[in-house]
Amino acid sequence: TLFEALYDYEARTEDDLSFHKGEKFQILNSSEGDWWEVRSLTTGETGYIPSPYLA
């Protein structure tokens, strides 16, 4: 399933992933509550992002 970022986000820890509004992601793991592990389709990087920032 693909999701798109609604807002920009700046990583706060080394496990987080910074991203920009409009960036698209593949969800790798959504079992961690509000923090999902994703792969950016723009950069190929993986990390955790806050799920409320996605649509």
Rank of each mutant, 00 (worst) to 15 (best):
N29Y: 05
A11W: 15
D8T: 07
A55T: 11
E32L: 13
W35P: 02
D34W: 13
W35L: 08
S40R: 14
E45W: 10
D8G: 04
Y7D: 07
L6P: 09
P50L: 10
S40H: 06
E23P: 01
E14W: 08
D16R: 14
E10T: 11
P52E: 15
T43Y: 01
V38A: 07
L2G: 12
K21R: 09
D16G: 15
D8N: 07
I49P: 00
R39T: 04
Y7E: 05
T1K: 11
W36A: 00
E23H: 06
K21C: 06
Q26W: 13
E4P: 02
E37V: 10
E10S: 09
L2Q: 06
E37C: 14
L6N: 06
P52K: 15
G44D: 02
S18G: 05
S30Y: 14
E10I: 12
L6A: 07
G44R: 00
L54H: 07
V38W: 15
K21I: 13
T46Q: 11
E45S: 08
L54D: 05
E45I: 09
H20Q: 09
Y9M: 03
L2P: 05
K24N: 03
P50E: 04
T13Y: 15
D8W: 04
R39F: 06
S51R: 10
E32M: 13
Y53N: 07
T46M: 06
S18A: 06
F25I: 02
F19T: 03
L54C: 09
A11S: 13
L28H: 01
L41A: 11
R12C: 12
T43M: 03
T43W: 03
L2I: 14
T43K: 01
A11Y: 03
I49W: 02
S51P: 07
K24I: 14
Y7R: 07
A11D: 02
K24M: 13
Y48A: 02
E14V: 10
R39N: 01
L54G: 07
G47C: 09
Y48S: 03
I49R: 03
K21L: 07
E32K: 12
G22N: 02
N29Q: 06
R39H: 02
R12Y: 07
S30M: 13
G22F: 09
T13S: 12
Q26I: 15
F25Y: 14
R39W: 04
D15P: 05
Y9I: 03
H20G: 05
S31F: 08
I27A: 02
L41E: 05
L6Q: 08
L28C: 06
W35R: 14
Y48D: 01
F25T: 00
T1H: 11
S40E: 01
P52M: 15
A5Y: 02
R39G: 01
L6F: 13
Y9T: 01
E37W: 15
R12K: 12
I49G: 15
E32R: 14
V38C: 03
I27G: 00
T42F: 08
S40T: 13
F19Q: 01
S18K: 05
G22P: 02
Y53M: 09
G22Q: 01
Y9G: 01
Y7L: 07
Y9Q: 02
Y53T: 06
Y48K: 12
F25L: 05
R12E: 08
K21Q: 06
T43D: 01
Y53L: 10
S40M: 04
D16C: 14
P50G: 03
E45M: 13
E4G: 14
D34N: 07
L17Q: 02
T42K: 11
E37R: 11
G47E: 03
F19N: 00
E32H: 13
S31H: 08
E23W: 14
D15W: 15
E14Q: 11
T46K: 11
P50D: 01
T13I: 05
E23R: 01
L28S: 01
F19P: 01
G44A: 01
D8H: 05
E32P: 08
G33L: 08
G22E: 01
A5F: 14
F3A: 05
E45G: 06
H20F: 12
T43A: 01
I27W: 03
G47K: 05
Y53H: 07
F3R: 08
T46I: 11
E37S: 04
Q26N: 03
N29D: 10
A5K: 02
D16V: 14
A5L: 07
N29I: 13
A5T: 04
D15K: 14
S18W: 05
A55N: 10
E14I: 09
T42H: 08
L6C: 12
Y7S: 06
E45C: 11
P50R: 11
E4H: 08
E32V: 10
E10C: 13
I49D: 01
E14T: 12
G22I: 01
I27M: 03
K24G: 02
T46N: 03
E45T: 14
E23K: 02
I49L: 03
V38S: 00
T13A: 11
E37I: 12
L2M: 08
Y53F: 11
R12N: 08
L2A: 04
A5V: 04
D15N: 14
A11T: 03
E32S: 13
E37A: 06
Y9D: 03
I27C: 04
G22Y: 08
H20K: 14
L6I: 08
S40Y: 02
E4N: 04
N29H: 11
L28V: 06
D34H: 09
Y9H: 05
L6V: 06
T13L: 10
Y53G: 05
K24T: 07
T1A: 12
E4W: 11
F3P: 01
Y9P: 00
A55K: 10
K21N: 03
A5G: 01
Y7W: 13
D34R: 05
K24D: 00
S40L: 05
G22L: 01
L54F: 08
Y7T: 05
T43Q: 02
L17W: 05
F19W: 02
A11M: 03
E37P: 00
N29E: 04
S40P: 02
L28E: 01
G33M: 08
L6G: 05
R39M: 10
H20V: 13
E45Y: 08
P52R: 15
E4V: 14
E10F: 12
D16W: 12
F25K: 00
R12L: 10
G44E: 02
P52I: 15
F25V: 00
H20M: 10
V38R: 00
E14G: 12
P50C: 14
A11K: 08
S51C: 10
S18P: 04
G33C: 11
K24L: 15
F19G: 01
Y9N: 02
G22R: 02
P52A: 15
L41K: 01
F25Q: 00
V38T: 00
E45P: 00
L28I: 10
T42D: 08
G33N: 10
Y53R: 05
T42S: 11
S31I: 08
I27T: 03
P52D: 14
E10N: 09
E37K: 14
E10K: 11
L54V: 08
S31R: 10
P52T: 15
K24V: 12
E23A: 04
S18Y: 05
G22K: 01
E10R: 10
L41C: 11
A11V: 14
F19H: 03
G47H: 05
L41H: 04
I49K: 15
E37N: 06
A55E: 08
G44W: 03
D34F: 14
E45Q: 13
I49Y: 00
K24C: 11
K21P: 03
N29K: 05
G22M: 15
Q26V: 14
L2Y: 13
T42L: 13
Y53K: 06
L17K: 02
W36Y: 03
E45V: 09
A5I: 04
I27R: 04
W35V: 07
D8Q: 03
T13R: 14
E23G: 15
F25G: 00
D16F: 14
W35N: 10
R12D: 07
F3T: 03
A11F: 03
W35M: 10
L28D: 00
T13W: 13
A5E: 03
